[in-house]
Simulated assay, not measured.
Amino acid sequence: MRTICFYFQVHQPFRLKPYRFFDIGDDHHYWDDFSNKSIMRKVAQKCYLPMNALLLELIHKYNGAFKVSFSMSGVFLDQMQAYAPDVLESFQKLVATGNVELLDETYGHSLVALKSKEAFKETVAKHTKKIQELFNGYTPKVFRNTELIYSDEIGAMIAELGYDATLTEGAKHILGWKSPNYMYTNSIDPNLKVLLKNFQLSDDIAFRFGNKTWADYPLTTDKFVKWISAVPQEEEVINLFMDYETFGEHQWAETGIFDFMRHLPDAVLSRTNFRFSTPSEVVANAKAVGKIHVPIPISWADEERDLTAWLGNDLQDEAFDKLYALESLVKECKDSDIKRDWVYLQTSDHFYYMCTKFFSDGDIHSYFSPYDSPYDAFINYMNVLSDFKLRLKEITTAK
């Protein structure tokens, strides 16, 4: 079996509004509703609606031979319901074809797997329930942790929850001489299959496609098919994992990204011995070649492929620790607003904005951040967290 597995991450955070020290104790609404709605609508018009329409067209055109998979964060699902019901309907149409697989993840697109096994299980269950509600009882069989964060221990937690497989980065420092183009197993529980991103081919589309200074610009379907055809015959699976916002938002329509995707299935199916599969189909049809050992967590972010996009500097670590110090109090609390804010405050983007890697991938971090600096992001977040803590203590003390 030679197959290509397309996976798209779909996520939008609930961004915080500017929140001053003087707002603490007075203003309990933290979210920038105008910004969140306007960004969601903008990305819907540029990416979600046209790309969903294109994928639906391709699935029908090739009679089900073209397949893709998505993981949609719970915070994205909430925003679709609130701001873009038309986008939700278009995703529902895709899933109804039977050629689109949905993956589970943490509801809040959080880093909770690094902190609390119990809270991790709870947020995953919440996400499963939301997927079932919105997609006619659909129950995911494959898991994708936030930003492909994975380790042996995290894999074992995922296996405990009963998933067949998980996705992660084919990081060089983990693979060594091995290829990402095989299926592996978790080193603690071999029942969990592990699919690894081919970062070279994935990033050619996601990051380099519109870069006119790139030596291989422009990327055409002919060129891409030539590259995948050069993959050794014994290597079975090419996993192309990327942000869904690649299409139309990160790579604008003017770059030709939609035309590239429109013509890619035909080029692959007619000129190579590859087909397209969902992650579950890869698990069912491919044979695992061995265990993958990941003792220290990896991710798909930045050159380092580690956790330093979200954790590691003093700002990030203090915010992260202060947040999860409130976990036991939140568990006692039954207030629905507190529960909602707790989920949204865990979203990894808040910590990403605090990253101080100015020289390593600094431009990418700046592109996604609504703040002038990581320090502004930290101050704003900690002000909000201070108010959240006050509310929490008030409610739990009053019981």
Rank of each mutant, 00 (worst) to 15 (best):
F241H: 03
A230W: 06
F241I: 13
M183G: 07
S116N: 14
G176D: 07
K130A: 14
W252V: 13
L167N: 03
M242Y: 02
Q251S: 08
D164Y: 10
K212T: 15
N145H: 15
E133P: 05
D164A: 10
E153Y: 01
A215N: 12
T213N: 15
V124N: 10
L148G: 00
K126G: 01
D243C: 05
D152K: 04
L134A: 11
E122V: 14
E249A: 13
Q200H: 09
G137V: 13
T123I: 15
L175E: 01
N239G: 10
E245L: 02
W177Y: 12
P232Q: 06
F224V: 08
L192Y: 08
T123M: 09
F135N: 05
N239E: 09
N211I: 12
G176P: 06
T123V: 13
N239K: 04
K130E: 12
T220D: 06
E118L: 14
E245A: 02
T128I: 11
T185P: 01
T128Y: 05
L111D: 00
K117I: 10
S202L: 08
Q200F: 12
F241A: 03
E160P: 07
T185D: 06
S202T: 03
G137R: 09
K117H: 15
K223S: 08
S116D: 15
F120K: 01
Y138N: 05
A156G: 06
E234V: 07
I131F: 04
T168D: 05
K126F: 15
N191C: 08
A156K: 15
F209N: 10
F247N: 05
D222L: 07
A165V: 09
V112G: 03
K115S: 10
E118W: 08
E169C: 08
L175H: 00
L134D: 05
I238N: 00
S116P: 05
W214S: 02
F247E: 11
W227P: 00
E118G: 08
